[in-house]
């Protein structure tokens, strides 16, 4: 795997529909072997980006490299190594699940006919559709179709698998299974590019994340980088009379108490005679070991009743990046 080229790279990727810019100067960088979560609210341009990556839609501007090859010039040689689920499953309702897979497999000029039956059966098995494989797709639930769509992406060994909102329509059990499937793909070295509008659904399995908002890629990096990017917060609970002392002790450490969680205690203006505990909160500087803070407080005679340093959840960062309320951006 030495110096494997990036699985996906784009620079300035842009798509306009009429006067609306739907994808706007996106510079994706998906390293080989990554599980890349492509996050963004509905309408943020995820599917449109994926269509351009796979040569279904033409980019208005920008460049695309997939598996080290410039697209769309080399579609015919790159796409056999790419499995994809794009904007939901698409199947012939009048054919069985297995017949649908065989049909799409027959369209792939590189897929050997001799092994088709076995590969179809294996793909159905991997998504738990062995029992339903002979049923007409007309009779499938949305979740079953979604599974069949994923099975289609797995018909051949792939280097890159692109899954656009794979957990749509799946029950919690199905969602867990998809996560397991993605993990098992990743463990064999396959790069997985998975889009979602729900961070929680994919957070646990991603190594990298890119966040789309209104057609722009507003953040991209490893999941740890994105976690670290958020400001940590110190939560401190002290005996109420010691609150002012605590604030004074923290100041030289670079910790400025901005909020006191207890409603009766306004920041540093804490009533010294108030009984009970006072909760204080402050932005916590990076790189400062929390135990130093505790030592300083105890040394100054502050009765520390509780201390915690919170990293914002990725969820919070995601909401901060994409905007509250998940409004569909026009």
């Amino acid at each position: 795997m030495t110096a494997a080229p990036a699985a996906i790279q784009t620079s300035g990727l842009t798509k306009r529909f009429g006067r609306q810019t739907v994808v706007d100067g996106v510079d994706l960088d998906v390293p080989a072997g990554a599980v890349f979560g492509f996050l963004g609210p509905n309408g943020s341009g995820k599917t449109t980006t994926i269509r351009m990556l796979l040569g279904l839609a033409n980019a208005t501007a920008g460049e695309i490299t997939v598996l080290g090859e410039r697209m769309p010039g080399t579609l015919g040689t790159v796409l056999p190594d790419v499995g994809a689920l794009i904007e939901g499953p698409g199947f012939y309702p009048f054919l069985s699940g297995a017949a649908n897979l065989a049909r799409l497999d027959a369209a792939d000029g590189w897929a050997p006919r001799a092994t088709r039956r076995t590969r179809v059966a294996e793909a159905l098995d991997r998504v738990g559709l062995t029992q339903a494989g002979g049923k007409k797709v007309r009779a499938y639930s949305l979740g079953m179709k979604q599974r069949l769509g994923i099975a289609n992406a797995l018909l051949m060994p792939r280097q890159l698998i692109v899954l656009d909102e794979p957990t749509n329509g799946l029950d919690p059990q199905g969602t867990r299974e998809v996560r397991g499937l993605i993990r098992s793909l990743a463990s064999t070295g396959t790069t997985v590019f998975v889009s979602s509008h729900l961070l929680a659904e994919i957070e646990q399995m991603c190594t990298h994340i890119g966040v789309m908002r209104g057609g722009r890629l507003v953040a991209q990096g490893t999941i740890d980088e994105l976690r670290a990017a958020g400001q940590a917060t110190l939560h401190l609970t002290v005996a109420a009379p010691d609150a002012r002392l605590a604030v004074r002790t923290l100041a030289p450490l670079g910790i400025v108490v901005t909020t006191a969680a207890a409603p009766e205690a306004q920041a540093a203006e804490v009533a010294p005679e108030a009984a009970g505990d006072t909760a204080l909160a402050a932005p916590f500087p990076d790189g400062l070991p929390p135990e130093h803070v505790v030592a300083a407080l105890v040394g100054a005679g502050v009765r520390v009743r509780g201390v915690a340093v919170d990293r914002p959840s990725l969820e919070d960062s995601f909401v901060a990046l994409t905007g509250e309320g998940f409004d569909v951006v026009q």
């Binding site: 279904l56 698409g90 000029g109």
Partner: peptide, 17 residues
């Protein structure tokens, strides 16, 4: 309309084919 066109094209079957 069945959504199979995009899957045929990425399978990939060339457009001319």
């Amino acid at each position: 309309s069945t959504g199979t066109l995009r899957y045929l094209l990425v399978s990939p079957v060339g457009r001319i084919r």
